[in-house]
Design a protein around this nucleic acid. Structure first.
Lengths: 146, 146
DNA sequence: ATCGATGCAAAAGTTTTGCATATAC
DNA sequence: GTATATGCAAAACTTTTGCATCGAT
């Protein structure tokens, strides 16, 4: 896993390359995702950052804008939940997919080589230039089956 | 593939079992999904039904309510697009996954036995009681690669 | 000094809800 | 006749946008 200073460098370089500015808010969001290894909605991130940093001003719009930027730059990634919005996580870990418990909402990550290979084959079969893929398995986690 | 009369019977039985009523609006939505083998937003369905049936009154709320009912009953299924909402299709065809073109928005369906088997194995590995799964491969379709 | 970034509030878009009325049973 | 379903409009959410101001370069 990448260290935070390296990630920060990567981010700064990215910003510089695109004539974007390095701001306290952007760094806070990046650090939040780095430190918190779970899945958060923009609202979650906004509320938690506000609470943890009463001294810094931050608006929900900036959270949305930054998450979009991070996702476009492939530093963050998201899972969609229909009308319930998206949840974000740091996207630099090894690619993985998700098991989602419909009862407690817990998300388990997994990685499966066979599935990865098969996805490549399928994209090729349809002459599809794959830029990403997501797989969600939904059901009941061990705990919630009682 | 199931015939429409059989599907209609299935739906009527389902309604009866749950003390729900068979209404013209519910039938129209079911028939729409049966006849149109693509993926539609609730708004799409609402607009098209209104246009095709100027004589029948139908509200967007009923479309939402019915789609939720159909999905809960596993007659319809949906794909999530984050803030852009969900798209629905009849869920009784053979289970399949989706290739989604990020340029033209076109959706290609596919089925892959290897992936299906692998998903079962993964769920088992995590003692997860799988109730469903979705896989999306996003990228550029043949046409949009130019 | 410049130009992009921010916060705020308003707007836009999607989905849900309350309620009086209509309709299936 | 009773209970559920409907349409409408309002409300609730999530996300985006316009704009004056702030701040990084």
């Amino acid at each position: 896993m990448i260290t935070y200073p390296l990630l920060l460098d990567k981010f700064k370089t990215l910003l510089k390359t695109n004539t974007l500015k390095f701001t306290k808010q952007r760094e806070l969001i990046l650090k939040f995702l780095y430190d918190n290894d779970e899945h958060y909605t923009p609202e979650d991130i906004y509320m938690l950052l506000k609470k943890e940093n009463p001294d810094i001003n931050i608006g929900i719009a900036t959270v949305y804008r930054t998450l979009t930027l991070l996702e476009d730059s492939e530093i963050a990634s998201s899972i969609s939940f229909g009308a319930q919005g998206k949840k974000y996580e740091l996207g630099l870990k090894k690619h993985h997919d998700h098991l989602i418990c419909t009862s407690c909402g817990n998300i388990i990550e997994f990685f499966d080589e066979t599935i990865e290979e098969q996805q490549e084959k399928i994209a090729a079969k349809f002459n599809f230039k794959m830029t990403g893929h997501t797989m969600k398995i939904v059901g009941l986690c061990e705990k919630c089956q009682n």
